[in-house]
Nucleic acid binder design. Structure first.
Ligand SMILES: [Mn+2]
Length: 796
DNA sequence: TAAAGCCACTCAT
DNA sequence: CTAGTGGCTTTA
C-alpha cells in the first residue's frame, strides 16, 4: 500500500536517471516486485499448478541487467507478516482466492481468454518461489537476505549500515523508513527514477523544508499507512498541514478533536504510537551481528514485551536460517527445494541428518570464516581509495567484534525448541554442506559496499559526475508557469505535439522489441514514433520554431536530397526524415548524433543482458559463417509473438539510420563538420552519460572476450568482430600510425563517406589544431559505437 | 475547487 | 508476503 499520493507529491524532485549512474555501487532490491511481475508471465501455469519458473527467469534477467551496468545487486525478500497487517493480508488472500476460483471455472468452460485476467489477479508469490530465485542467486554468488518481517525495513537498514548504497523498490514506504536514495520505475533499458531524501527540501508541491525524519514519518502515518488507517478525511495534504502547524502528535490529535469534520477514534493516539514505532523499531536481520536487531534500537525504558506489534523475536539460529532462505519465514519450517527445477542439481548426497545438526554452525569454525571473510572487502578496495572512510572503518571494526561476539550467542542454540519447530526436515543437505552454505551466505550478506560516495576530484572540468537532472527543472527556479507534471503527462501519454519533436529517427529499441508483429517495421511512421531529444539545453523551443533546413534522407545508398520533400507514399517506405538545422548550427548535429548513439546504446544494452542462450542464438543466426541453422530458440517458430533477437538486430541494421546520419554529416562542409564534432565533444548532455557508462561497458565486453577457454559465444562474437573489421580495412586501406584504430572506427560509423570525418582528424591549420583535443573527447563515443557494432553489425 | 476515497487496471511475453 | 496509477465520485 505504501503512502497514498506520496510519490505524486514528490514528482518535482524525481530525477530521471539510468542504472549506469550507479555503476560501482550496491543496490538493494525489493525482490518481491520482480517476482510478482515475473509471475504475471505465467499466471496460468501458477493457477493450474503447472511447473513454471518464468518468474525466476524474469528476476534473473533484471539481475543480469544490474550487473551489466556495473551495479552490484543485493536482493531482499519479504518475511513474516506483522500482526497489524494480517487484516489487509487476509483480505488480499481472499480476493486472490475468488479470482482463482472464477478463473478456473472459466478455464474449465474453455474460455481461456477470459480466464487469464482472473488468473493474473490470483497471483500469489510464495516463499517457495522466493526460494527458487535464491537458488539461482547462490549459483551466481549474488548477495541476498530474507527479512524477518518487511523487506522495506530490511532495505533501509542495509542502506543505513552502508551495506548497500541505494534501494530499488516501487514502495513509497521506504522513504518513511528513512531510505536516503530510492530508485523506482526501472524499465527494461535501465532507465529509472531516483528520489533522494536530501532533495526533500526542494520539493515544490509540498513544503518539506525543515522536516526531520520524525516529522515526515508523523505526516505519513497520519495520512494513513500499512499499520494504521487514517482518520476519515485526512490524507497527505491535511496531515502535512497539521504537522507544519502543530509539530507534535499530541497537539495535532488534540486539535483534531475540536474540528467538527474529523472524528478521532478512541485510542487513536495509542494506535499512532504503535504504528510509528513499527516503522522506527522494525525488526531486521543484521548481517553484521548475525541476529535480529531493531531498525532503531529501543530507547531506555522501552520493553519489547510491551510491543507485540513488532512481531516475535527469534533465536539467532532461526534468524539465520530464515535469512538465508532455508526456513520458511512464517512457519520456520524447512522449505523444500525442488532439485529437479533448478538447472544445476546439487552434487552433494542428500543424506538425512538429525535435526540438531542442521544448526551446528560451530562458532569455532564459523567465526574463523567470518573473520577472514570480513577482511576480504578491504583487499578489494579500489586502489584509488586505499583508506576506508571513517564510517567504513567503524563498520569493519563492528564486524570484527560482531564475529567474536557471535560466539556466545550461536553456541547456545535452543536445540529442543529448534527440533520441535522443524518437524519434517527431510530434505536437508548434509550438516556440513549446509553449515558451509550458511557461512558463505553470511559472509556475502555482510559484505559492505566499497563504493565511496564523495566522488574523487577530477583534473579537468568534465565535472558533474553526479546523476544529472536530465529532466529539466531546477528545484529552485520555475521555468514554466504550468505545473510540470501535467506537461510531462501530456508528452508521454498523448501524442507528442509537433513542436516537441526535433528529430525524426527510426523506432526506439523498445518499439522494435514490442512491435515485432508490425510488418512495416522497417519503415518509419514519424508521427507516432518520434525519438524525442532529451532537452538539457533548453534551446529546443527556439529551435522548434526556427526555420531549419529539412533533410530528407533515403535509407539506401543513394545521394541525399537536400531541401526536397519527398512524397510520403511515392518513395521507399524506409524513409527517415531528419529535421535539423545542420547547415547553421553544429549543436543540431550534435543532438542528432546523440540520439543516434543513444539508440545504438539501447539496442546493444538490451542485447547484453539477454539470457546467454538467447544471445548465442542471435549471434549464430547473424553470423555469416553459419550456413546450417541449428535447432534453437532462434530457429524455432515464434511462440506468442516473442521476437527473435536476430530479427531485432537485422531490422536495426536494415533501418540504416546510422547511414543516413552520416550521410547528413558527410554533406556538411568540412569546417562545419569540425564545428559539429567540437560541439559533440564538449557536450555535457547525453554524450556525457554515454561516456560515463563506457568504462563499465568496455570492461564487461573485454572480460567477456578474455574468458578462457573460449566459449562458442565468444568465438561467434569474434567472427562478427573480424568480419566487420576486415571489411573496414579493405574499404579504408589500413590504419593510422599514431592512432591505429581511429580510422577504422570512423569507417565503422559511416560506410558512406568517411572522408569528412577523416579530414577532421588531420588538422589543417592552427585554428583547427585546438579542435583535435575536442575530437579526442569524442573518441569514447566512437569506441562505444565500435562496441555496439561488435554485437550488431554482421547482418550483411 | 482541492482533497479524499473508491474501484478497476497494470504487471510479461 | 506488494504496489502504483488513472479515472471517477464524494465531500466540505
Ligand atoms: Mn511497504
Amino acid at each position: 500500500m505504501g503512502i497514498n499520493g506520496l510519490l505524486g507529491v514528490l514528482k518535482s524532485i524525481q530525477k530521471h536517471t539510468h542504472l549506469r549512474q550507479f555503476a560501482g555501487q550496491t543496490i538493494g532490491v525489493d525482490a518481491y516486485g520482480w517476482l510478482h511481475r515475473g509471475a504475471v508471465a505465467c499466471a496460468m501455469e501458477l493457477a493450474l499448478d503447472k511447473p513454471c519458473t518464468k518468474y525466476v527467469e524474469y528476476a534473473m534477467h533484471r539481475v543480469r541487467m544490474l550487473i551489466y551496468f556495473g551495479v552490484t545487486p543485493y536482493l531482499v525478500f519479504d518475511g513474516d507478516n506483522l500482526p497489524s497487517k494480517t487484516a489487509t493480508e487476509v483480505g488480499r488472500a481472499k480476493r486472490r482466492e475468488e479470482s482463482k476460483k472464477k478463473g478456473l471455472e472459466l478455464y474449465k468452460a474453455s474460455k481461456i481468454s477470459q480466464a487469464y485476467p482472473e488468473f493474473q489477479k490470483s497471483i500469489d508469490v510464495t516463499p517457495h518461489m522466493a526460494r527458487q530465485l535464491i537458488e539461482e542467486l547462490k549459483k551466481l554468488d549474488i548477495q541476498y537476505v530474507v527479512a524477518p518481517y518487511e523487506a522495506d525495513a530490511q532495505l533501509a537498514y542495509l542502506e543505513k549500515k552502508g551495506i548497500i548504497n541505494a534501494i530499488l523498490s516501487e514502495d513509497s514506504d521506504l522513504l518513511v523508513y528513512g531510505a536516503k536514495r530510492l530508485i523506482t520505475k526501472l524499465d527494461q533499458h535501465g532507465d529509472c527514477i531516483e528520489i533522494s531524501r536530501s532533495d526533500f527540501a526542494s520539493c515544490r508541491d509540498m513544503t518539506l523544508a525543515g522536516f526531520t525524519d520524525a516529522d515526515f514519518r508523523l505526516m505519513a502515518v497520519l495520512s494513513g499507512c500499512d499499520y494504521l488507517a487514517s482518520i476519515n478525511k485526512i490524507g497527505l495534504k491535511t496531515a502535512h498541514t497539521y504537522v507544519r502547524k502543530y509539530k507534535r502528535v499530541e497537539k495535532i490529535v488534540h486539535m483534531l478533536q475540536f474540528e467538527k469534520k474529523f472524528v478521532v477514534p478512541n485510542g487513536y493516539l495509542e494506535c499512532f504510537y504503535e504504528a510509528e514505532r513499527t516503522f522506527l523499531h522494525h525488526r531486521v536481520f543484521c548481517p553484521l551481528e548475525k541476529k535480529l536487531v531493531f531498525f532503531t534500537e529501543l530507547e531506555d525504558g522501552m520493553k519489547e514485551e510491551d510491543m507485540p506489534y513488532l512481531g516475535k523475536d527469534v533465536s539467532p539460529a532461526i534468524a539465520i536460517g530464515v535469512a538465508c532462505g532455508d526456513l520458511d519465514p512464517m512457519t520456520k519450517n524447512q522449505i523444500a527445494v525442488n532439485v529437479a527445477i533448478s538447472s544445476r542439481s546439487m552434487p552433494e548426497l542428500h543424506r538425512r541428518r538429525t535435526v540438531a545438526s542442521v544448526y551446528d554452525l560451530k562458532p569455532s569454525k564459523s567465526i574463523d570464516n567470518f573473520f577472514k571473510a570480513k577482511r576480504q572487502p578491504l583487499a578489494e578496495l579500489d586502489p584509488n581509495s586505499l583508506t576506508p572512510s571513517p564510517s567504513q572503518q567503524r563498520l569493519l571494526n563492528l564486524n570484527r567484534n560482531a564475529s567474536w561476539e557471535a560466539r556466545p550467542i550461536s553456541s547456545a542454540p535452543q536445540l529442543g525448541r529448534t527440533a520441535s519447530i522443524m518437524p519434517g526436515a527431510s530434505q536437508v543437505h548434509t550438516g556440513q554442506s549446509q553449515s558451509r552454505e550458511r557461512s558463505s551466505f553470511l559472509e556475502r550478506a555482510a559484505t559492505l559496499s566499497t563504493f565511496q560516495p564523495p566522488k574523487r576530484m577530477r583534473l579537468c572540468s568534465d565535472v558533474d559526475v553526479s546523476p544529472s537532472r536530465k529532466d529539466d527543472r531546477s528545484p529552485f527556479f520555475v521555468t514554466k508557469p504550468e505545473p510540470s507534471p501535467s506537461i510531462r503527462k501530456r508528452g508521454k501519454t498523448k501524442k507528442a505535439r509537433l513542436s516537441d519533436i526535433e528529430v525524426f529517427s527510426d523506432d526506439s529499441v523498445a518499439d522494435i522489441f514490442q512491435d515485432m508483429q508490425d510488418p512495416e517495421i522497417g519503415s518509419v511512421d514519424t508521427s507516432t514514433k518520434p525519438a524525442v531529444l532529451p532537452d538539457t539545453t533548453g534551446r529546443s523551443t527556439s529551435r522548434a520554431s526556427s526555420p531549419g533546413a529539412t533533410l530528407v534522407t533515403e535509407v539506401c545508398d543513394t545521394p541525399i536530397r537536400q531541401k526536397i520533400q519527398l512524397p510520403q507514399s511515392g518513395i521507399s517506405p524506409s524513409t527517415t526524415a531528419i529535421s535539423v538545422n545542420a547547415a547553421d548550427d553544429p549543436g543540431e548535429f550534435r543532438d542528432l548524433f546523440e540520439v543516434h548513439v543513444e539508440h545504438l546504446n539501447n539496442l546493444r544494452n538490451t542485447f547484453s543482458y539477454q539470457r546467454p542462450e538467447r544471445q548465442a542464438a542471435a549471434l549464430r543466426a547473424l553470423s555469416p559463417a553459419t550456413s546450417t541453422p541449428q535447432l534453437s530458440e532462434e530457429t524455432a517458430p515464434n511462440q506468442d509473438g516473442v521476437p527473435r533477437l536476430s530479427q531485432v538486430v537485422r531490422r536495426h541494421a536494415q533501418s540504416q539510420h546510422s547511414a543516413s546520419l552520416h550521410k547528413t554529416f558527410s554533406t556538411l562542409p568540412s569546417h562545419q563538420q569540425a564545428a559539429a564534432l567540437k560541439s559533440l565533444g564538449s557536450s555535457q548532455s547525453s554524450t556525457e552519460k554515454v561516456k560515463l557508462g563506457l568504462a563499465a561497458l568496455d570492461s564487461a565486453t573485454h572480460s567477456f572476450m578474455q574468458q578462457r577457454p573460449m566459449t562458442p559465444l565468444q568465438q561467434l562474437g569474434q567472427q562478427v568482430l573480424d568480419t566487420s573489421r576486415s571489411s573496414d580495412c579493405i574499404s579504408h586501406g589500413g590504419s593510422r600510425g599514431d592512432r591505429p584504430r581511429a580510422g577504422s572506427r570512423v569507417e565503422q560509423v559511416s560506410k558512406v563517406n568517411v572522408q569528412g570525418s577523416e579530414d577532421l582528424l588531420v588538422p589543417k591549420s592552427e585554428d583547427e589544431r585546438s579542435e583535435v583535443s575536442e575530437i579526442e573527447d569524442v573518441e569514447p563515443v566512437r569506441r562505444h559505437i565500435d562496441l555496439a557494432r561488435f554485437a550488431f553489425t554482421a547482418s550483411a
